[in-house]
């Protein structure tokens, strides 16, 4: 088994601070499917591009790093036996049907770091 990161590109993230459950329904449904399939290692929905801050060199600016029509709206890491299997999962992402898309990248290393318990 290998791990793949799936980066979701969309015009913007649906997960705005004031987003209603209806706004998020389609994404929640997809997340539930993935969870059921048992493939997800970690998943993160990001807030919209308006909330992004970028640093290039020493300069901090408002907005996403790359000025493009699409931004990374979220990402998740899945476990799959091979790329075909990963693509099969990735293509079901609602973003692919909404004018955006996904990028699948094999994970080199990493994971959630657990802090040692205190005391």
């Amino acid at each position: 088994m290998a791990q793949y990161a799936i980066l979701i590109y969309a015009n913007d993230s649906a997960h705005a601070p004031q987003a209603t459950p209806e706004d998020l329904a389609i994404h929640d449904k997809h997340a539930a499917e993935l969870e059921e399939a048992g493939a997800v290692v970690a998943a993160f929905a990001l807030t919209p591009r308006d909330m992004a801050t970028s640093i290039r060199g020493d300069v901090v600016t408002d907005g996403p790093f790359v000025e493009a029509k699409e931004v990374v709206a979220g990402f998740y890491v899945i476990e799959a036996p091979d790329l075909d299997a990963a693509l099969e999962i990735a293509r079901r992402n609602p973003a692919t049907q909404q004018g955006g898309g996904v990028e699948v990248r094999p994970v080199h290393s990493g994971g959630v770091i657990t802090q040692p318990a205190e005391g």
Binding site: P17, T47, D50, M51, A52, T53, D62
Partner: peptide, 8 residues
Amino acid sequence: AKKKISTA
């Protein structure tokens, strides 16, 4: 801008 201040 205010929304970014609080959300970010």
